[in-house]
Design a protein around this nucleic acid. Sequence first.
DNA 1: GATGAAAAAGTTTGACC
DNA 2: GGTCAAACTTTTTCATC
Lengths: 149, 149
Amino acid sequence: MTIDDVDRKLLAALQEDAGQSYAALGEIAGLSAGSAHERVRKLKAAGVIRRTTVDIDPASLGAGVLAFVLLEANAWMGDEPTQQALRDIPAVEEAHIIAGPASVLVKVRTTTTEDLQATLRALHEVDGVTSTQTVVVLESFFERQPAVV
Amino acid sequence: MTIDDVDRKLLAALQEDAGQSYAALGEIAGLSAGSAHERVRKLKAAGVIRRTTVDIDPASLGAGVLAFVLLEANAWMGDEPTQQALRDIPAVEEAHIIAGPASVLVKVRTTTTEDLQATLRALHEVDGVTSTQTVVVLESFFERQPAVV
DNA sequence: GATGAAAAAGTTTGACC
DNA sequence: GGTCAAACTTTTTCATC
């Protein structure tokens, strides 16, 4: 799909507040409400907008411990079972294959350090993982969504 | 604010799809549409729900390069100007003070490796930063929102 | 593609439990 | 707190340009 500047304006506005009316969106993008609606419908159909969701404050739910964990492995970890094993651990928010010594970098968020320990144990038990190296976050400056450039 | 199981059900359902009706939300949580509406209003007022937003596929916008950068610093980087300097770089999605050798871990997403290079240069120019260590992501398994437990 | 207006659906309020 | 229903607003469709 081709995304032009009008689409980008709509995306940025929706990222800011997905609850606003199509009339308001149209005003921002220089469109009628109907056209704004049609543009957004296409962006959703094309998968540019994956879904409308809600940004929840993790701290309010008691999830105050954040850490990044490097997983070193003795086998190729880019296969489907490995992916699924990581997905099955709820505390794992992200998992990436990286260039460099360790093979997988995961982002983990838990309520307590005991939970973090339990999650690390679960990561150790993933097939192929030989060691983990954990970096605990002391304070987060910010976590924001990808910029719409 | 006290968050009970009914609230958690609502939060999980909204995270999945913020566009669904209060009638549907009520059904999930075992509430009338009116009560679901009132609960969600309170969750928003209390800041548990920060905002309703849209999940945009970064790849569709051409943002295909992801990296994590460790910033080593010669001064305390937990101050407001440092935070703002990082915030002012659009490609920086996250910034965390970490326990360990380097002091700040940032997550960076750009369209090209040239853009990544430009971002690294910008990070080098942040006051106090003495060196950067970059880990480039080869493939992302997943990036998802914090679990509602 | 965009517009404008009508029809359908959802949100929001308020009286009552 | 929760329910129900009426009043209001927005979404969605559609004929037209």
